[in-house]
Design a protein around this nucleic acid. Structure first.
Lengths: 240, 240
DNA sequence: GACTGACAAATTGTATACAATCTACCTATC
DNA sequence: GATAGGTAGATTGTATACAATTTGTCAGTC
């Protein structure tokens, strides 16, 4: 039997729901960097007042996934190249620390690996169905679930902010399309983790992150930037 | 000549001001873990409506320095022993990464070390004046300034959340009084950093954190806990 | 035609009103 | 006296009204 939730308990989960909708849209790259997040529009979409939307946006802003421009409202963040380097540097630090901790705890959390295998399987399916958005999101969720299994809530929280920011960086700076290898990398990483092999797991995670970064064009010289992306984004904005 | 700020620009800095007042009060241990943060009272103190206070509290809640209890309001966080271990673990990871990055950049940010020396000097003065609260806060600010000099904004942000949380942990679990050595540790760390000696700096930071943790009573068995603290806190609450 | 200024519309920022909920106290009952 | 129930007051949660600001448009001027 389901507990009859009071209207205010319901609203708390609704808050979370709105947040996750926007979060997922960013992970799936349906929401492009720079997109304006108009409070009233979002309020109408989700059937709540601006108060609630504003709280959600403030959470996203705190996680640096959105930014508030004074008197102009909230926008999906557009990390510049310097931001991108810092974010990826921080993410590497976190991810290595996380796999280290998961490997250490491997024997005591054996039952909890199931969700990771499920995520990999779903990733395979989405990839086979050429559902790129879902595949990207699931890849992010794999990393977030790993963070949860680290048993360290602050680290989990930090990664929760870094994963969508990485998604924005990929949207802005990815030069080459991603090969299908990412899923296999997740698989091999998980195998090493189950064995509690911290060194191997850290090595695999490091390579995994290398592969993500290799596909980015993060040099300062504007000449090397992908012009199609630059103008493509303008076109996207105008069309929306 | 000072720009005449509009009322809304002023309000933005006011926001920051309220946040810092509460943040500092926690660093200086004037605000004890578990203290209720009543919205209307804070609004009267700072001369703003609950809307503004609520935004500040929500920021503190994101940083895990405050917690919202549904329909009961916000309280200063009370990390339990498990939380404390995770926070200190995360903090060590961050601090070591930060000194590594500061040491790497040492030659290119030479002019920026001045503030750190100033902070150490102020720490000495507060310590000499037996102004314990200020001394603790300045110690925290030293670590935050270090984080700023790392040149990595995400890492700086994470540490900004971990420093006040550490303050709460010390308030709750410190068994032995801190010796005066901490300031000298900051001095020696800074010397190593200026020379760009990353290994030495990391070693010193590791020891510095060891010393903080050594003074805590973080074992699970309740019998070993400081009973005076447990009941002292109740008395404090009732008296407030 | 390009530029400036002013007005109108749209949007955000803040305060406040109202509803939902919790807390404390009091009373009735055993 | 202890306990359950119920009412009043205090407090939070949400929506909304209003003020401040920005943005877009359109005359008017050069």
């Amino acid at each position: 039997m389901v507990e009859p939730k009071s209207s205010r308990q319901r609203s708390k989960t609704q808050d979370q729901h709105i947040y996750e909708e926007i979060f997922d849209a960013i992970l799936e790259q349906r929401l492009w960097p720079g997109t304006r997040l108009k409070e009233e529009s979002l309020g109408e979409i989700f059937g709540v007042s601006r108060t609630i939307i504003r709280r959600t946006l403030s959470r996203l802003a705190h996680e640096r996934v959105a930014v508030f421009e004074p008197n102009r409202g909230a926008f999906v963040a557009e990390p510049d190249i310097s931001d991108a380097r810092q974010i990826l540097d921080a993410r590497r630090l976190m991810e290595l620390a996380i796999v280290e901790r998961v490997a250490e705890r491997a024997s005591s959390i054996k039952g909890e690996f199931k969700k990771l295998y499920d995520l990999i399987e779903q990733e395979h399916k989405s990839s086979a169905a050429a559902d790129k958005g879902t595949a990207i999101r699931l890849s992010g969720e794999f990393h977030l679930e790993l963070a949860r299994l680290s048993g360290n809530k602050p680290l989990e929280g930090f990664l929760h902010s870094l994963v969508p920011q990485t998604s924005l960086i990929i949207a802005l700076y990815q030069a080459k399309e991603g090969s299908r290898c990412a899923i296999d990398e997740h698989s091999r990483l998980l195998d090493a983790l189950k064995l509690g092999d911290a060194e191997e797991a850290k090595c695999l995670m490091g390579e995994h992150l290398d592969h993500i970064e290799e596909r980015l064009a993060l040099d300062e010289s504007p000449g090397n930037r992908n012009l199609a992306k630059v103008f493509g984004r303008r076109a996207e904005k105008a069309g929306a």
